[in-house]
């Protein structure tokens, strides 16, 4: 459904080139929930925005983003606009993404009227059904964003995303800034639309554990591991994935030593090397992406030629 091949996104800044996404490849299969986990500064949000070509002009993108056979990077802006919202929906981070002076119903109906030339009445009728399905309440359609709580606003954003029945939904940090109890409501919400193909970007590991079919872990612009969710949480492969899970309060609250390196001058070879307890001499070379029983990991530990 969506294939990303050798994607690179660089930003030129005064301080140097920021390699926000560096040589990333993965594939989202039809019907699955593919979740990218990463901490702030890992480049995960940039990756999501690159897919929809929403990045600012100073970003340099190369590689291929193939969606249903079309390379999105080769499309014109006009063709791209037809894909956004209709084929690929974007659920932005909560709170400020709604227009405060328009009622929520209109904002959700807009893509329907735009892409399917639906008239206002039938578009609104459909939005009311979606609102009821998501537990917002169809009668709130004429209310304005400020009348909704944080969790409810997130629901409205989801409603807006699914209104045009897109083939792929990309959600960026859907639980950011929400309380623990609100988070579980958002998990329920995403379960309800679980039959859709979804690419979720999050730093919230609990959220990923509850929803994902497959998990990708991003560190410093690179994807270091791609695994089916169940196996990932049972036995993470990459040392960073392991460190990340162990730093959860429920798994011992063990910190990873050191700090995340700067994106301008990341260490050569494996970028996690300086914080890794298994680091060896060979880690100074770029590790290959190693396939292991349907899982992928970018770490020298799993390279058969180097087992000693």
């Amino acid at each position: 459904m969506l294939e990303i091949e050798d994607l690179k996104v660089y930003f030129r800044t005064n301080a140097g080139i920021v390699k926000a996404v560096d040589d990333v490849s993965f594939e989202v299969r039809k019907g699955e929930n593919f979740t990218i986990i990463g901490e702030s500064g890992s480049g995960k949000s940039v990756l999501a925005q690159a897919i929809l070509r929403l990045l600012p002009k100073n970003a340099e993108i190369c590689g291929r983003i193939i969606f249903n056979g079309k390379d999105l990077l080769k499309l014109s802006e006009k063709e791209m606009r037809r894909i956004r919202g209709k084929e690929i929906a974007w659920i932005p981070q909560s709170q400020t993404s709604l227009n405060p002076v328009l009622n929520v119903g209109f904002q959700c109906a807009e893509p329907l009227m735009e892409h399917f030339r639906m008239d206002k009445k039938s578009a609104f009728a459909r939005i009311i059904r979606i609102f009821e399905f998501l537990g917002i309440g169809g009668n709130r359609i004429r209310e304005y964003p400020h009348q909704f709580s944080g969790g409810m606003r997130q629901r409205v954003l989801v409603a807006m995303g699914i209104s045009a029945d897109p083939k792929l939904i990309i959600a960026d940090e859907p639980t950011k800034g929400l309380d623990a109890s609100k988070r579980s409501q958002i998990v329920e919400l995403f379960r309800k639309i679980g039959d859709k193909t979804m690419l979720i970007i999050t730093h919230d590991i609990n959220f990923a554990e509850n929803l994902a079919d497959r998990i990708a872990v991003m560190y410093c612009g690179k994807i270091v591991e791609v695994s089916p969710a169940k196996e990932f949480f049972r036995e993470p492969l990459h040392p960073y994935s392991r460190g990340l899970l162990d730093s959860l309060p429920s798994r011992g609250l063990k910190p990873i030593k050191g700090f995340q390196p700067s994106m301008i001058n990341p260490p050569k070879g494996c970028r996690f090397r300086e914080r890794c307890e298994f680091a060896r001499e060979i880690c100074k070379d770029e590790p290959p992406l190693i396939s292991l029983n349907g899982r992928f990991v970018r770490c020298w530990l799993y390279d058969r030629g180097n087992w000693d």
Binding site: E39, S40, H203, I205, G243, L244, D246, S247, L248, P249, L253, K254, P255, I256
Partner: peptide
């Protein structure tokens, strides 16, 4: 903060 940073700050 991020999860791994949370762990180090709390520790």
């Amino acid at each position: 903060l991020d999860i791994s940073t949370q762990a180090s700050i709390v520790r």
